[in-house]
Design a protein around this nucleic acid. Structure first.
Lengths: 250, 250
DNA sequence: CGTCGCTTTGATCATGATCAAGGGATGTGG
DNA sequence: CCACATCCCTTGATCATGATCAAAGCGACG
């Protein structure tokens, strides 16, 4: 059902959408991700406090980054989809700052820091493109923060659904208005700083208002416009990137 | 009272704490910040939606990054102190994602993307160090997100005070337990996703509990240990960095 | 057919928002 | 030197969003 991992190159595809990559650059990029590892559903990919000498690229699957507070409350800071880097910025610290778990059986590829920084030195265009994906990740953090800090439960859930739809669409895992929700309501709650019952009620309200339709795992956004207006959602932070420094000759 | 801007080199100082910089590297770093601009209190340094070809370094002063929602609610995502980059990741997008305002008269220095990426190509150690400061910024976002998503008002305010204390200490603007609070309670409220009266009451409670003392603008953390325990605060995300890729020869 | 994981619903509770009004400081013009 | 205005802090009363607690429904799967 799932294609062999070696066939999927989500990171390359993602960066290629940004910049037309040369064959050489593609080769370098593929070399970065040459070794892969399978991580089973519900196993940790990264563990808080451990030392790492690499970032990871998520080749296939879905993972969450989170922190668990002393009394068990959990905040999911971030959801990773195929093509995303895992471990930025966490792994750059003495002792990873967060744990990352696979939500489904996943394939990851470690990218040693040394290799990564090597590419930064030798392939400036690639460097800029990779840099972009970090910027994009940071932008999602900021947007997530606004969500949790100042939006109502309804707006939060709406924004969350639209962000997920947009991101899944970008990597070909959603069509224009529908996708399979990879998270349980408990996970959504922990991502949005809400309780499970309230997420459930909020989803119900969105359904009652004819804004979305949810059946089993399938989410259909019935009215993207209106939902976006409700959530104050602008997808610019997920896409339009400037590549100003691309023509760098030093 | 304040030293002339040309004397302050907070970014260089910050990075020098990380890696012993060569004279050449220091020169390159200073060259990056060679032009400066003064921004008056309450003026915007960056405006949401505008295009920029540069990041900025905050040389002196304090600034906030924020988004205002359609109905006027404001979320401050981030507070910048001297030595911090302003405009990551926002300025890498077509149309800056957020506005940034100076809270006091400030000095900033534009760093054109082209120059920045040039350094990335030519000075890998510097690149890694600058990269670190982006990672640190991203880590603060994540920590802020946990704050707002899953901590109570009391924990949030406590965590906020400790983060500020630690950051100010790192740049020599605070002693071991006290500092001048650069934000009004309204700004604290907008940073933490709370209302002004509740921030006020929460600060009062921290005072009543003998954890902090606040007089005018001066904040004294009376009991760092206990406050850190209350807030679940670990300062590792503000300091300990690995420089694994520092010895890169390509 | 029973268990497990997830969703759904209801009833009650509490944290923190909102609304409303003062209370200092500090600064400015008369 | 005083009047007044502005900005921020403080406090109180009420309200509401969303948490918590509890229990039932409902597939899927072994």
């Amino acid at each position: 059902m799932t294609p062999p991992a070696s066939c999927a190159r989500p990171l390359t595809d993602k960066l290629a959408q940004l910049v037309a990559l040369t064959l050489d650059e593609i080769a370098v990029l593929e070399d970065l991700q040459s070794t892969t590892r399978i991580v089973r559903r519900n196993r940790e990919i990264l563990t808080e406090g451990k030392k790492y000498d690499a970032l990871f690229v998520l080749i296939e699957g879905v993972s969450i980054r989170y922190r668990i507070l002393h009394d068990g409350r959990r905040q999911i800071t971030n959801i990773s989809l195929p093509g995303d880097f895992i471990g930025f910025p966490s792994n750059f610290f003495e002792g990873a700052l967060y744990s990352v778990s696979a939500l489904v059986d996943s394939v990851v590829s470690p990218v040693p820091f040394a290799k990564l920084f090597g590419v930064f030195g030798s392939h400036p265009r690639l460097a800029a493109a990779i840099f972009w994906s970090f910027a994009c990740e940071a932008a999602m953090y900021a947007e997530h923060l606004i969500d949790v800090g100042r939006r109502s439960a309804l707006e939060r859930v709406a924004h969350f659904l639209l962000e997920l739809l947009t991101r899944l669409k970008n990597i070909g895992l959603a069509d224009d208005r529908s996708f399979r929700m990879p998270l349980t309501q408990e996970l959504i709650a922990d991502a949005l700083g809400l309780s499970v019952p309230h997420v459930n009620r909020t989803l119900r309200q969105l359904r009652d208002d004819q804004l979305v339709s949810i059946e089993r795992n399938m989410v259909i956004v019935m009215n993207v416009e209106e939902l976006a207006a409700l959530a104050d959602f602008k997808k610019s932070y997920l896409g339009q990137f400037r590549m100003p420094g691309l023509v760098v000759d030093n």
